[in-house]
Amino acid sequence: MLDDDTAISGAVEGRVVVAMSGGVDSSVAAALLAEAGYDAVGISMRLYATPQENYTKSCCSPDDLFDARTVASSLGIPFYVANYQDAFKERVIDYFIDEYRYGRTPNPCVACNNHLKFDILLKRSLALGATFLATGHYARIDRSGEHPVMRMGVDRTKDQSYFLFGIPREALNRIIFPLGGLEKDEVRAEAHRLDIETADKPESHDICFVAGGDYKDFVAERLGKEKIQPGKIVLPSGEVLGEHDGIHNFTVGQRRGLGVSYNEPLFVHSIRPSDGTVVVGPKGSAFSTALVADRCNWLSFERPPRSFECTVKTRYHASPVPAMVTVGDDPTIATVEFLDPQGAVSPGQAAVFYRGDEVLGGGWIGETRG
């Protein structure tokens, strides 16, 4: 059962490469496309080889590649493993470490989509003679208008459009999201209907390359002592509350694990990598009235208007909030002014712009304004 946005008139005879991670979502995506008559080919990306033994909460582990191969075999479709370890290390893992080193909060899932799935893998798919690349993301491509637009997935609790703002506008014609019109429980039901081996496989919620989910130790180990930036923990007034052993342990909006005590709850307000200072304060002091986003990518515009109203998400789990966006001569830079001040707006995270359920585009938060 493919949703209406996925059904592309006259294209069912075309080849589609399906990015298969070994999870239930990408398995169902491949099965639905094969069932609909597409010439489906499964590809898994080998992204890292790690000596860590805890693969149970990660994706793209050796066990996951085996699951993907097993599903492809049961569907009777060709299956390949593409080795992208070097690209993943450079564009995702090294980026992840550097962002924490410089006091920003990275988003490795966006980086992986931008640089691997919808760049390197898309190009490889086209080189293999495919018309489309499909993934198991919960988002939709609406092809009813003059140009395809991206929309949120029907299941708002699983919607992944936030992670997809960096897809090149011209690539929307080449992408299929078979699950965008389904609720998660419907995907599970489809997996059982199709007798897919991964039907009851649990979801992964941790950072895929950090076994056990403890990113702080992971970053510290790879930075080494000479690159870790210790410093002071201070109030906005400058009063010193304590010291810390590395800014990589903090992110804007963080409340727990600050290592200092005070007469009311404290939140990380800002991080100064120049001298290692972490500024903390009561909740109200950590609110931002505006942000500047750079490296913006626009999905609904060839060139965005000079200013427009929309809603914006500044974290994956945040709700979209009303804002005014202003774009100057450089369309890759946008200033976002919130109608109401927002908390935990973190440099390094993505700001993604919406009009209703349509994804207009997005960029990376470079700075915030109080």
Rank of each mutant, 00 (worst) to 15 (best):
Q349D: 04
L360H: 14
Y354E: 11
Q342E: 15
Q342R: 15
E358I: 06
Q349E: 14
A344Q: 05
V359L: 15
T335Y: 10
T335H: 13
V345E: 09
G361D: 10
V336T: 08
F353M: 11
F353V: 05
G361M: 07
A350N: 10
D357E: 15
S346F: 04
G348D: 12
D357A: 08
A351C: 08
L339G: 11
R355W: 03
D340G: 06
R355H: 10
L339K: 12
G362R: 07
A350Y: 06
V352P: 03
G362K: 02
L360I: 12
R355S: 15
P347Q: 01
G348C: 10
V359F: 08
G348I: 01
P341A: 05
Q342S: 10
A351T: 00
V336M: 05
G363T: 13
D340S: 13
P341I: 05
E358N: 04
D357W: 09
G343W: 06
A351P: 00
G361A: 09
L360N: 12
D340C: 04
L360A: 12
F338C: 07
Q349T: 05
L339D: 14
A344H: 09
P347L: 04
Q342C: 08
A350W: 04
P341W: 01
G361S: 08
E337W: 05
V352W: 06
S346E: 15
G363C: 15
G343E: 15
A344D: 14
S346G: 08
V345P: 01
P347C: 04
V345R: 06
A351F: 05
F338V: 03
R355Y: 06
G348V: 02
Q342G: 03
G356A: 03
T335A: 15
V359C: 13
V336G: 11
A351K: 03
G343D: 14
G356N: 09
G363Y: 11
P341R: 13
G362Q: 05
V345M: 06
T335M: 13
D340H: 14
F353G: 00
V359N: 13
T335D: 12
V352E: 11
R355K: 11
S346Q: 07
G362N: 10
G356S: 06
T335L: 09
F353Q: 07
V359I: 13
G356Q: 01
P347H: 06
V345L: 05
A334V: 00
P341F: 00
G348F: 05
G362W: 06
V345S: 09
Q349K: 07
V352G: 03
V352R: 02
A334W: 05
G343K: 11
E358A: 02
A344V: 00
A351Q: 06
A350E: 12
L360G: 10
Q342K: 07
E358D: 03
G356E: 12
G348M: 06
G363M: 11
F353I: 00
P347I: 02
Q342H: 07
G356V: 01
E337M: 07
